[in-house]
Design a protein around this nucleic acid. Structure first.
Lengths: 165, 165
DNA sequence: TATTGTTATACTCTATAACTATA
DNA sequence: TATAGTTATAGAGTATAACAATA
């Protein structure tokens, strides 16, 4: 099970009216839902992130993608090994640098990525089911402003762990 | 480092305009900030949650608090051992049932809990610094409605992990 | 016989460092 | 000598199951 950390002590004990607390709590729930929704597809949230990254930068080297996602090289080996074994990703030799492996999605990988995106979309719809379209827009705007202010300028380390830091 | 899971693949690659994604991303950031802010106090988010739970149910048994937070008994032993070694928590025999240990905060534990609450409050203030008071209220309301709809009825398993699932 | 706390153990996840093959 | 990928290894964190004392 994924584990959040900040929502710690939620339970039946207390529910401080704090944005930080609520965001963390809902974020945790959403993470769990994503993991549960992805499980039938045989992948985890981190694989989803990896597949997306590969899809959007086809041909990039293993290390380069790992760096962008803050995944150390040795970990990338295991993760890509796994995806390659399932025929979702392929390592191809790079003519320009024979040390490097360029990563590509297989057709099966692309199909799976589409299915995973569907799962994510369904979660979004369920999550916002109680909100009017205008309310959802309002929420998106407010959260976006929080994200801008709070996030470190570059990439944030989200793929690294299993549950939640 | 704490790790979220759903925010996977954030990086420089993509930023879907999704509430689920944004909530998870910001929630992850907040968790990291809490961990960082608590570190100088010598505790982690899960300890914070545990201290709060004990503070609000003084005298409850170890098992009972563990159950409320979805922490297995064997894990509670280690966690409470740790807090007791630092003189933040005390186990006291229960006259009614000599198998059970009732948990109490020491004065030092209460002081530390106060400090931790300050840390959390500062994070909240920083997070919402860019929002007008009315906007923050709006956000609280919208998030509250998400939390109601998305959360399972009872307790949610947040204390289990280290950072974020 | 069931339950509280504990211990022992095994498993998963992850990162660090050493290694190889190229550059 | 530096870098891409790999392998080996060791550490942290966690859960499961066996155990002792008490109910």
């Amino acid at each position: 099970m994924v584990a959040d950390g900040i929502s710690a002590g939620t339970g039946s004990y207390e529910t401080p009216p704090s944005v930080a607390f609520l965001v963390s709590r809902v974020g945790f729930e959403v993470s769990s839902q994503l993991a549960a929704g992805l499980a039938p597809l045989g992948i985890e949230p981190r694989d989803f992130g990896l597949l997306r990254a590969i899809a959007q930068t086809e041909g990039e080297s293993q290390r380069s993608i790992g760096q962008a996602l803050s995944i150390p090289p040795s970990r990338m080996v295991t993760l890509i090994d796994d995806l390659e074994r399932r025929r979702l990703v392929r390592r191809r030799p790079q003519p320009s640098d024979r040390r490097a492996h360029a990563l590509y999605l297989t057709p099966a990988g692309k199909r799976l990525l589409d299915k995973a995106a569907d799962v994510a979309m369904r979660i979004e719809m369920t999550l916002c089911a109680g909100l009017a379209p205008a309310e959802r827009e309002e929420l998106l705007g407010l959260l976006g402003r929080l994200a801008e202010g709070a996030a470190p300028p570059g990439v944030h380390p989200a793929l690294a762990g299993a549950g939640r830091e």
